[in-house]
């Protein structure tokens, strides 16, 4: 009952995980796959209906080309490997961002296929932020709003949100950022406005269902006020902005 409707994960710590084991950074990305699948399943079985994962930011293109290249291959391999299972479990997959022409064509095709395949599923919506930037989404919404020629005095928070990519996505209730880092990093800026944040110390490749449940537990114990001082609530953020 006191379950967050929308949980988002900033999957941090792959590089450090690999460095601790004297492995190349890419080994960390490789190990992250198991954590991703574990969290998807944990969220789904816990009854979370919206899960978002921050996989690749617009800033990540600055990483060494070889690392980016391997990362793209890993994503493609993971998609092909897990697509039937995700579909069978009723997960609708979406990719947020995806604007850069540097994303390899075969990966784009597989991502499109995955979105087509799972488009009718409703049990849980998994949004993978890939080549994503929160500010860019807001700019895109502003452009779309200007193009729609809405008079300035008719622009409200709700009407603005309608122009964001995947505008049916509800506000994020809980953000989990692993590895102890405490930054927003340009992630779904509009949607995290009222989110609760938790910062477990565990590195993402080691993050498992139990850690996820702990985070849900922390969320349940938080008092969400949405800016109000008179009453406090531990309900989900539904209906609030």
């Amino acid at each position: 009952m006191l379950l967050p409707r929308h949980v988002a994960c900033v999957m941090d710590g792959n590089g450090r995980w690999a460095a601790q084991r004297s492995l190349p950074r890419t080994a960390g990305h490789e190990a992250a796959e198991a954590a991703v699948m574990d969290v998807i399943e944990a969220a789904r079985s816990a009854g979370v209906t919206w899960l978002s994962l921050y996989a690749f930011s617009t800033e990540n293109w600055r990483r060494p080309a070889a690392e980016v290249d391997i990362l793209m291959r890993l994503v493609r391999r993971a998609i092909r490997k897990h697509a039937p299972a995700l579909h069978a479990r009723g997960v609708r997959c979406r990719f947020l961002g995806m604007a850069d022409p540097r994303i390899p064509q075969p990966l784009v095709r597989d991502i499109t296929d995955l979105m087509t395949l799972t488009g009718d599923n409703r049990r849980m919506t998994l949004t993978v932020a890939f080549d994503h930037g929160g500010r860019r989404d807001i700019v895109a919404a502003a452009r779309s709003l200007i193009r729609s020629a809405t008079p300035a005095d008719q622009v409200t928070e709700d009407s603005f949100a309608q122009h964001l990519p995947y505008s049916d996505t509800p506000d994020v209730d809980l953000v989990i950022r692993t590895s102890g880092e405490q930054r927003i990093s340009n992630f779904m800026l509009w949607q995290v406005a009222y989110a609760e944040w938790v910062f477990p110390q565990v590195l993402w490749p080691d993050f498992r269902a139990t850690h996820f449940w702990e985070c849900l537990d922390t969320y349940r114990r938080r008092q969400r006020r949405f800016g109000d001082v008179r009453q406090s609530t531990t309900l989900t953020g539904e209906g609030h902005r």
Binding site: R80, H87, D110, D113, L114, T116, L117, G119
Partner: peptide, 24 residues
């Protein structure tokens, strides 16, 4: 749409040729 989904599934479960990665 159903046919498209079936086709997408078929493409996803068919092993990707290694060379396919580079064929832009």
């Amino acid at each position: 749409r159903k046919a498209g989904q079936a086709a997408a599934l078929l493409r996803l479960i068919t092993p990707a040729p290694a060379a396919d990665d580079q064929q832009v």
